[in-house]
């Protein structure tokens, strides 16, 4: 029997996806419903904001973006 499950489709790069999967596995799998393919995850709607926050924290630890050139007014 066909089922339609409500949730959020997350599309991201494979690298980001693996971080998300790791976050999920260290938090009792409370975020991800289904691992769809290399670049897609199916996530609980209510947990999306928390997941975004966790990803942001994780990226801050590792990722330092280039600062753009200062403007000379």
């Amino acid at each position: 029997m066909v089922k339609a499950v409500r949730g959020v489709l997350v599309e991201c790069e494979p690298a980001i996806k693996s971080i998300l999967v790791h976050i999920d596995s260290t938090h009792h799998h409370e975020f991800i419903i289904d691992d769809l393919d290399e670049t897609h995850l199916f996530v609980k709607e209510t947990m999306l904001q928390v997941l975004k926050q966790k990803l942001e924290e994780r990226l801050k630890e590792t990722y330092r973006p280039e600062e753009p050139l200062e403007d000379s007014e």
Binding site: V2, A4, V5, R6, V10, E11, L20, D34
Partner: peptide
């Protein structure tokens, strides 16, 4: 893009189809 590392969209996942034919047509 840099900020939005994940693109999200709300909706529904359809799964557990009885037959390939049903999946293809829907």
């Amino acid at each position: 893009l840099e900020n939005e590392r994940m693109r999200t969209s709300a909706g529904f996942l359809f799964k557990d189809f009885d037959s390939l034919e049903e999946y293809v047509s829907l």
